[in-house]
Write a protein that binds this DNA or RNA. Structure first.
Lengths: 339, 339
DNA sequence: CTGTTAGCGCTTTCAT
DNA sequence: ATGAAAGCGCTAACAG
């Protein structure tokens, strides 16, 4: 049995005034005699009055709620991003309504609809991997609901976004490998169609170019390849591979397994760098050098953009490319011991 | 600029009927002539009408929203639990409002207040580690808002809960070690005051008892001990330890590090079992045997209890102790090669 | 079958 | 300074 909460009217009748007066007293807005104000405030406190945000939402046409769409919960990256988002929204007095897309476009579309229906004041979204249509996001924007994209973005959607600097992140990693003498650097690419995959690949190539190393198609593998493990094994067995840069830490771990099987020492004979700096980096042996994307900060920045756009809809298109940090651990040789 | 959404009244005036009629047609409730019904439905569809849940909440005094309080986002356990919860609430048409306590009682209290203010239809909470007061939870219950506890519970709060069977989880792990011949089993305990710590410790003792192994105080370590690593080193160096059962996978990893340093082979000379089956178990070398707590299922069960209690407040106190699964990996010897 | 009326809790003119 | 009244979008009792 839901207990009835006390309302502004309860206070009003008890004090022989009207709800308007109570509202004014509580919100400090209009003029209320000091005496009445204090009476009202103290009774409100005594009765444990709590304003009903639902009623407020209805008249103010905003909910103090922001919607969040993320692909999934289990990657550490998203957990950290979520924590970053929560840290700013909660401080600003906003509630978080959470939806998952499970990396499926269909669920993502449903989520946007759900959030729009819920009349959230704004939406923060990481678009799912498999997106090829963007009408649902356009619809969000058309509805006048501020939208900010985090981690992934699309050029088809003109809205603020915060992403990680994949190009330079990859560049710094491969550059590091080159500086330490690696000449034959394997790269495992991420999912096709993702801008992150493309940009990291570009960063890889640019680093090679800088060091005058010829690009070798043979050293490029696809994570989606069902024979990935065999391909890795082929490369490590038959080509003079001395470095590897993987799209993710998990893919780097695949390299570890094959290397271990082939008795190839890391970092002795092979230096490896992963991406995302997931906890796995510090657990595997040797610990894995990786590129940290600052997911917490990404969440913070995205949330700030959104709050800003909510309070100031005509703001210029804010866009941020977050710097990455190369974290060096045991999987890379600090100094190349000569050939 | 927020676009005005079309309302039930817009449709009503366009069709020269009253809002009530439109409401009835849309909700299928009362009687409406088939002709009008179709007219209304088709116009609603054409105009892209979407009901305003805020208005509905105000009159129905429920929000179709459930509040969630979790200690933090980053442990895989909570991510999985969250996924489980989300999977049932989203299917049931409920929105999830998320708050974190950061394992702090003060934040937890604030979160309950926030959720109560938001008029959520129910609350799902994992109480924070350091809780010693429970008035805020009692307040939730007094307000008539259904409350379900997950993962952790307190006997001071009489409300449905879903927890994991820590006693048997620990028992099965240590029993397994004993069956494989371990005689001197180290145990690292969890945080003091937590029921899980206590129950796992009891499970450990009970397994020893079953196998007629004398309990040895020397083999019990505390995770909070600042000299934990040294203590582990001491045990592994000076005592004939042949097995270890840790309160968490992360603590098991600490054992790994010391064992590696001391050149003690796992599982050759030392069998190790962790707890929680976090991803780390599959990344470390050798892969770690662990006790899976089925966090996803825990989320599912908790959410179901809550939905049940929401729709049926007078339900009996539902309580579930979820079975654990012992996951055997490389850190334990399947068959003890004799002494 | 359909319209009228009232009300959910609150804000916000507009009078007084 | 305060009250009266309207309205946010919707539901629900009550009349016809």
């Amino acid at each position: 049995m839901r207990k009835k909460r006390i309302s502004i009217t309860d206070i009003a009748t008890a004090l022989h005034v009207t709800p308007s007066t109570v509202s004014r007293a509580l919100n400090g807005g209009g003029k209320v005699s000091e005496k009445k104000r204090l009476e009202i405030l103290s009774l409100a406190k005594k009765l444990g009055y709590r304003p009903n945000p639902i009623a407020k939402s209805l008249v103010e046409n905003r909910t103090h709620t922001i919607g969040l769409i993320i692909p999934e919960f289990t990657h550490h990256f998203y957990s950290r991003m979520l924590a970053g988002i929560e840290s700013v929204t909660s401080k600003a007095g906003y509630q978080l309504l959470i939806c998952t897309s499970n990396e499926k476009q269909k669920q993502e579309i449903k989520s946007t609809q759900t959030l729009l229906d819920a009349r959230v004041d704004g939406i923060l979204a990481t678009i799912s991997k498999m997106n090829d249509k963007f009408e649902h996001l356009q619809e969000v924007m058309d509805s006048g609901t501020p939208l900010v994209l985090v981690d992934r973005f699309s050029e088809e959607i003109e809205t603020p976004y915060v992403i990680s600097d994949d190009f330079n992140g990859a560049f710094s990693a491969v550059d590091y490998l080159c500086q330490n003498g690696c000449k034959h650097i394997l790269h495992i690419k991420g999912p096709a169609n993702l801008s992150t995959t493309f940009n990291r690949f570009m960063g890889y190539k640019e680093a090679l170019r800088k060091h005058g190393i010829a690009f070798n198609e043979e050293l490029i593998l696809e994570s989606s390849d069902t024979n990935l493990v065999e391909k890795i094994r082929f490369c490590l067995s038959n080509l003079p591979v001395d470095g590897a840069f993987a799209y993710s830490d998990y893919l780097a771990f695949e390299i570890y397994k094959v290397a271990s099987e082939l008795k190839i020492q890391i970092p002795g004979r092979l230096s490896v760098i992963g991406y995302a700096d997931e906890p796995i980096s510090t657990y595997i042996n040797p610990t894995l050098s990786s590129v940290n994307q600052q997911p917490f900060e990404m969440g913070v920045a995205g949330a700030k953009y959104l709050l800003n756009k909510i309070s100031n809809p005509e703001t210029v298109l804010e866009v941020k490319t977050l710097a990455t940090r190369l974290v060096i651990r045991e999987s890379t040789q600090a100094v190349k011991t000569g050939h």
